[in-house]
Design a protein around this nucleic acid. Structure first.
Length: 878
RNA sequence: AGGCACGUAGCUCAGGGGGAGAGCACCACCUUGACGCGGUGGGGGUCCAGGGUUCAAAUCCCUGCGUGCCUACCA
């Protein structure tokens, strides 16, 4: 028996432990019987704590994997975490700072040891939280991007790409974070528009009179200017090209050159060129052989090339320099200006374009294959609108800066020979230089971008570069489920790497879900204070309610807006299921359901109806899951459970429990409810298991390994289902009259029915008691065509029957008259529209036949209703 | 600057060429023996605006307005 109230707390832990103990989550590499189905988890950062995004992402994955597992697949959900280079290093450094230390005090080796220790202590947090959510990952296989095996994969890939010329090292302007002291890839920069200024600065000509005025948003960079550029077709400047100007403050002579990239219409048409601190300027300097001067160090502090500003922070320098320029008469103008500012996605510092030596992946050739794979539908991207975004980015892909100047990560497997400058790139640590034989080798200190190793995730987690069973069985994976925000960061890179190194796309489908926002559509953030914490929600309402809420809101291509209140709503739903479970269990207790042999003719109309409805629900749910329409699956199940099974079938079953069909009703009650739990299990694993375990006729030891319900064609009765609905309509008709006339439920009514057809009339004999019970009716009288309709009564009209409720002595006749007037008006409006449509020649000629017929049918129904309602109106006068 | 979404009931959103839907909120009634975390009934919408295609448009197309997001080397 189930407890009076559902309490998620102990139950969730209990069943999760049970599943783990039974190893249900484990997928067998050797199982060649079952078809394989696999998903790799988007690895959360080891430093991370579960947020709403994780919760949504992993709930969806868990639904798919549990569904497929129940449906007979050898289902693998590969779990793991990501070493998150910069983020983790930041966290551990902060921790060291608290202890009054810096990583430099420790040194590289000791610091890395410290990070590992930190991971040992805190890194498991998010894994525990995923378990709390119910995630049925194959934990025996858990991987970490810094594991030995995955590190081997990283080296193999790096060396291979290097040898092919797809990885190179070179001087380039990169996005530099002065706080993290590292280069970042283009993707790791967040662009924002900020209120800034545009400074106009006068550069006097070196010889003779006059000057050139340049405009800039970053005046401090002028200290590194090495020329001024103008457009060759700009007549204002043609005579000046080739001459020199004197750089104010620095008093350096720099040339004026002509280049077509300069926009004549911007500012004054003359641009200051700072090759070491601006990408465009750098490229221009290469074309013209212009000198390059670096004026800042790695922390954004001005260096010796900045003259008197040496030692100043870049923003302090900007301020001081502005003052000096003004004082010396070089500042022509300063106007407010919206400037695009790049910020570090980890620490939000302003990014500095910075010339340095970095490692890059030549992305073009890899992208080409990744584009082709999607074009040829070897991988589908869903919802489809993201395909365009994917192509757009892939077509315009730029080389990927993969070196990071931090310590925590995969150290680049490159060595420099101190003897002959040879660069050695090798999977195994070399002992001597292959060229000069020197043993004085120095390993590259840079580490790789974390996404470089995440890009290998679908195959590195399965044991690559070794040729493993897991790879044979589970690669390519069936679907990747992730947020659209990492389409480029991660999905695109996995596509490129998977195709390159496995010769096969990493996944057949990519399902991109939306971001979770708060109820007003705001992105959740600590500073806004609108964070909803998944753990809090689960503590309050249980994991099942939380999961169901996420699922119900996960409409394809839409933001997921969630709030405490909405989750609470689904907690009520869980409670409803619990109570339905109590009802079902208490009614089948002690009865031998296994002994019941189902003979179709012995099933009641209600039984046949709910069985038919069950089939439709199974169809709809399966179809929705196959198409990743999770909200539709949730809606279907919610609707069926609450408004079909509970509201109608349970109520119908109550009176039926006393007649000769009772054993069949019990069987149906049990069968439908058990199927329902099984269908719900992937979404709400805990409560479904708890109730299921109390039920008879279990074929497996857990709901999670029992078969997912299939449509049963033997138990599908559309005709009977229609008849049952006619009976339900009668009940609704009576209830509606009662409600609108404000008749208390305690008043038992008399009802007179007049059917359209004999066929239906016969049904009443058997199911009279259902109507009486559900509509609270004491007598039912059926009248024939010729029969006199009772006087002074209310009427409800359905498609098959007229329902009369004599009202004399029961209610106010005037009120009923108003109610009828209202209905008549409404129906007439609709009828008007229909008549117009059906009178239209074009409509009759051009519309499809079925449509015309349907419209005709509707019109007739309306006719019928109006006629009855008017009749009822007149009968009220009595 | 380009691209992509989205404007439907008070709120959050489904739907998507032929009778406007759900959940929550609201109103009325109800100690019906699974459930008040409940039951029954009900009110409420020029489906953003304007044009076009069509026999028929909330739905398809265009334009505008509004909102959100992404991409970009505009000093």
């Amino acid at each position: 028996m189930l407890d009076r109230e559902y309490d998620p707390k102990d139950i969730e832990q209990k069943w999760y432990d049970f599943w783990m103990e039974k190893k249900y989550f484990h997928a067998d590499d050797k199982d060649g019987q079952k078809k394989a189905y696999s998903i790799v988890i988007p690895p959360p950062n080891v430093t991370g704590v579960l947020h709403m995004g994780h919760a949504l992402n992993n709930t969806i994955q868990d639904i798919m994997i549990r569904y497929k597992r129940m449906d007979g697949y050898n289902a693998l959900w590969m779990p793991g975490t990501d070493h998150a280079g910069i983020a983790t290093q930041n966290v551990v450094e902060r921790y060291l700072t608290e202890k009054g230390m810096s990583r430099h005090d420790l040194g590289r080796e000791a610091f890395i040891d410290e990070v590992w220790r930190w991971r040992e202590k805190h890194g498991g947090l998010i894994i525990g939280q995923l378990k709390r959510l119910g995630a049925s990952c194959d934990w025996d296989r858990i991987r970490f991007t810094m594991d030995e095996g995955l590190s081997k994969a990283v080296r193999r890939v790096f060396v291979s790409l290097y040898e092919e010329g797809l990885i190179y090292r070179g001087d380039y302007i990169v996005n530099w974070c002065p706080r993290c002291h590292s280069a970042l890839s283009d993707l790791e920069v967040e662009h924002e528009e900020e209120e800034g200024s545009l400074w106009h600065i006068r550069y006097p000509l070196a010889d003779g009179e006059g000057d050139v005025v340049v405009a800039t948003t970053r005046p401090e960079t002028m200290l590194g200017d090495t020329c001024v550029a103008v457009n060759p077709s700009d007549e204002r400047y043609t005579s000046l090209v080739g001459k020199e100007v004197v750089l104010p403050v620095m008093n350096r002579r720099i040339p004026i050159i002509a280049d077509h990239v300069v926009d004549k219409d911007f500012g004054t048409g003359a641009v200051k060129i700072t090759p070491a601190h601006d990408l465009n300027d750098y490229e221009l300097s290469l074309r013209h052989g212009i000198q390059v001067i670096v004026i800042m160090d790695e922390s954004g502090i001005m260096n010796e090339n900045a003259g008197v500003y040496k030692g100043l922070d870049r923003f302090v320098c900007r301020r001081d320099l502005e003052g000096d320029l003004e004082e010396q008469g070089y500042l022509v103008d300063k106007t407010p200006y919206k400037v695009p500012v790049g910020k570090c996605y980890r620490c939000k510092s302003v990014i500095e374009p910075y010339l340095s030596k970095q490692w890059f992946v030549k992305a073009g050739p890899l992208a080409k294959e990744a584009i082709k794979a999607v074009e040829e539908s070897r991988t589908r991207i869903l919802p489809k609108q993201w395909e365009k975004t994917y192509y757009e980015w892939m077509y315009n892909i730029r080389d990927w800066c993969i070196s990071r100047q931090i310590w925590w990560g995969h150290r680049i497997p490159a060595w420099y020979c101190e003897g002959c400058e040879e660069v050695i790139v090798s999977e195994t640590d070399p002992v001597k230089c292959p060229r000069c034989g020197s043993e004085d080798l120095r390993q590259e200190t840079d580490v790789l971008d974390t996404w470089f190793s995440s890009g290998l995730w679908p195959f590195s987690t399965m044991g690559w570069p070794d040729d493993t069973q897991a790879l044979k069985r589970f690669y390519p994976t069936d679907v990747l489920i992730t947020g659209f925000d990492i389409l480029f960061f991660w999905v695109a890179r996995m596509m490129m790497m998977g195709i390159k190194f496995m010769g096969e796309v990493p996944f057949r489908d990519v399902y991109l879900h939306a971001l979770v926002r708060d109820e007003t559509g705001q992105k959740m953030s600590k500073s806004k204070g609108n964070i909803v914490d998944p753990i809090d929600e689960m503590n309050k309402y249980g994991a099942d309610a939380f999961r169901f809420a996420l699922t119900a809101f996960a409409a394809m291509g839409r933001d997921v807006r969630i709030s405490d209140k909405r989750i609470q709503g689904y907690r009520f739903f869980i409670n409803k299921i619990w109570n339905a479970g109590k009802f079902v269990l208490s009614n089948i207790e002690g009865s031998d359901l296994q002994g019941v042999r189902i003979e179709k003719e012995k099933l009641s109309l209600a039984d046949k109806w709910i069985l038919t409805k069950l089939n439709r629900a199974i169809e709809d749910t399966r179809c929705a899951l196959e198409e990743y329409r999770f909200n539709d699956a949730a809606d279907t199940l919610y609707q069926f459970t609450w408004h079909t099974f509970c509201d109608w079938f349970i109520e119908l079953s109550k009176p039926m429990m006393n007649d000769e069909g009772a054993p069949y009703t019990r069987w149906t009650l049990h069968h439908v409810f058990k199927s329902l739990l099984e269908m719900l299990h992937p979404i709400i694993p805990f409560v479904s298991e708890e109730i299921w375990q109390s039920m008879q006729g279990r074929q497996a030891e857990s709901i999670m390994i029992s078969p997912y319900p299939s449509v049963n064609k033997e138990l599908d009765f559309p005709d009977e289902a229609y008849k049952m609905e006619c009976i339900n309509d009668i009940v609704s008709g009576v209830r509606s009259i009662r409600g609108e006339a404000n008749i208390s439920p305690s008043v038992m009514l008399d009802v007179v029915l007049k059917f359209k057809s004999r066929d239906m009339e016969d049904l009443i004999g058997r199911y009279r008691v259902l109507i009486q019970d559900l509509a609270r009716v004491k007598s039912i009288k059926v009248i024939s065509d010729q029969g006199q309709r009772p006087k002074k009564c209310a009427l409800a009209v359905t498609s098959e029957v007229e329902v009369y409720v004599p009202l004399e002595g029961v209610i106010d006749i005037d009120q009923e008259r108003n109610r009828l007037d209202k209905q008549i008006n409404k129906a007439r409006k609709e009828l008007d529209a229909k008549q117009k449509k059906l009178a239209n020649r074009d409509f009759l000629a051009k519309a499809k036949k079925e449509i015309v017929e349907e419209q005709q049918r509707i019109k007739e129904e309306l006719d019928f209703m109006i006629e009855r309602l008017i009749k009822a109106h007149s009968l009220l006068e009595g």
